[in-house]
Design a protein around this nucleic acid. Structure first.
Lengths: 116, 116
DNA sequence: TGACTATATGATTCAATACGCATATAAACA
DNA sequence: TGTTTATATGCGTATTGAATCATATAGTCA
């Protein structure tokens, strides 16, 4: 412990750390990822999401709220229906990247199993 | 619902969705983010992480296990000590991006409050 | 082998949260 | 206003997972 130990990273407050963690937590539920995936096809009303995802109405409503809170999804009312849409387009590529990385890692694992 | 509704996304299995969610969940704990942040300075032993993070030894050990399971962190034994290091360097920029996005959004909110 | 150090893990407790059901709110329209 | 439709929300339950303490394991050295 000497030279390398101090890159002197700007210290991150516990509060900021908590906010980043909360943002990731929003993406840590399969149901919410499913909703996001649905919204990648274009904006949809709550009931359209219900139909497309197979989730219950109450769940979609609540999960949508989480996604809105995280700033990932936007909402607007149009008469009786509420339309949801992705506000942060980088989400899609982010998820794709995660997916690809997982795939890569799993492939290596499988290879490892086969080779032993 | 007609033209736009069908971008015909390759359907993602529930299993894959669960794995992506699990990966995000790994990054959804402040303690693990803290450990990652520590490791950005360079590889560290478990006890060095304990010292740097203020977490307990048991917690660091378990969280390190989670990070290893997610493929984000690697581990090797060197005698009595176990050295941890970041294996996926894209993690750092990912976290930075999330952080910046949050900052942007919060800034807008604050502006909104002031302007009303 | 026995003592010592670094790390891992079993067991428990506790808090967060997802789900389902029922119901409340909001908007449109007769 | 009353009715119907779309969405939100209160509440109870069950599950998950993080923190803690104590202890087990692994490696080093005398």
């Amino acid at each position: 412990m000497s030279a390398l130990t101090h890159k002197n990273l700007p210290s991150v407050s516990d509060e900021a750390l908590g906010m980043v963690a909360a943002w990731f937590r929003t993406l840590s539920e399969p149901s919410r990822l499913k909703i996001l995936r649905t919204l990648e096809e274009g904006e949809k009303s709550i009931s359209e999401i219900v139909e497309a995802s197979g989730l219950t109405q109450a769940n979609v409503s609540r999960h949508a709220q989480s996604l809105v809170d995280a700033g990932i999804v936007g909402r607007r009312r149009e008469g009786l229906t509420v339309i949801c849409f992705i506000t942060d387009p980088s989400i899609t590529s982010l998820c794709d990247n995660v997916c690809n990385n997982l795939l890569k890692r799993l492939t290596h694992q499988v290879k490892g199993l086969g080779g032993s």
